[in-house]
């Protein structure tokens, strides 16, 4: 809650701001009246049971879901149906998906350069340089000429992260990035995410990895039934939350693992 106060005092302006955002799918209210402010350079983990609206919240920030009510601001500019503005604001945020969503008909290098060349109108040489730098960063430069299907799940997700980074986004959105991975591949992806967090990247991470959330997050956002029930710094959330719903959730997680 300290963030909000800081903003209201005019000290920090949020890089992402959600005002009363709601989204329904048919009769189901996925998220209700969400208010959220994200500060630049901080890592936020969004936790909560399945179906609590975590992914929908993230997708509203990227406008993959159009909110029915409320407003979303990126860097002070409001997201709306205007395609030109939308495409421009989308280059400020980059999304990493649960299913990687690499382009299967292109090799990894082309996966990284296609948007640079089309959206940022870069020439091939420049785009390739950026792609190779990002692939080196996530440790799979040797896979540049391979096709996605030739990579392991962990490598594919790292390639997807590199693809997102290549666009030089201000904000990284992670939608359960390790949920589709075999257990032995989760660490290599989390390591890359930790590296980004330490570099000061603004990150919103929907995750079930409590260890990561605790170690890497500045703030934890806990959601249930489409609402933000609690927002606190990581240590407070895991050790000193008074919310009974949070306590139940945490006890279930601990008893499960």
């Amino acid at each position: 809650m300290t963030n909000t106060n800081a903003f209201q005092n005019g000290n920090v302006s949020p890089i992402i701001k959600l005002e009363n955002v709601s989204k329904t799918f048919g009769a189901i209210e996925a998220i209700k009246n969400i208010n959220l402010e994200v500060e630049a350079g901080k890592v936020y983990s969004i936790l909560g049971p399945s179906g609590s609206g975590k992914s929908t919240l993230l997708r509203c920030i990227n406008y993959l879901e159009e909110p029915e009510q409320g407003r979303v601001f990126i860097d002070g500019e409001e997201l709306c149906g205007n395609q030109k503005l939308l495409n421009r604001l989308r280059t400020k945020t980059a999304m990493v998906f649960q299913q990687f969503n690499l382009y299967p008909h292109m090799n990894i290098r082309e996966n990284l350069t296609i948007a640079l060349r089309i959206v940022k109108k870069m020439d091939k040489v420049q785009a390739n340089q950026i792609a190779e730098a990002q692939l080196a960063k996530v440790g799979i430069l040797d896979k540049a000429d391979a096709y996605p299907s030739q990579l392991s799940g962990g490598q594919q997700q790292r390639a997807a992260i590199a693809r997102a980074l290549a666009m030089e986004p201000e904000i990284m959105l992670f939608d359960e990035p390790t949920s589709a991975l075999d257990p032995e591949m989760i660490k290599e992806v989390l390591d890359v995410m930790l590296l980004l967090a330490n570099e000061g990247m603004t990150m919103l991470v929907v995750t079930h990895e409590m260890g990561f959330a605790r170690a890497a997050s500045d703030q934890i956002i806990f959601m249930d039934a489409g609402q933000v029930l609690e927002q606190a710094n990581a240590e407070t959330f895991f050790t000193a939350s008074h919310n009974t719903r949070v306590k139940t959730f945490l006890s279930q997680i601990i008893s499960r693992s």
């Binding site: 990227n62 945020t93 980059a94 999304m95 969503n101 089309i118 997102a164």
Partner: peptide, 16 residues
């Protein structure tokens, strides 16, 4: 073609 392909492309700023 899986829906995620369009989403990935749109999230990178490509137009429809």
């Amino acid at each position: 073609v899986p829906k995620g392909q369009m989403e990935a492309a749109r999230s990178q700023g490509l137009s429809y």
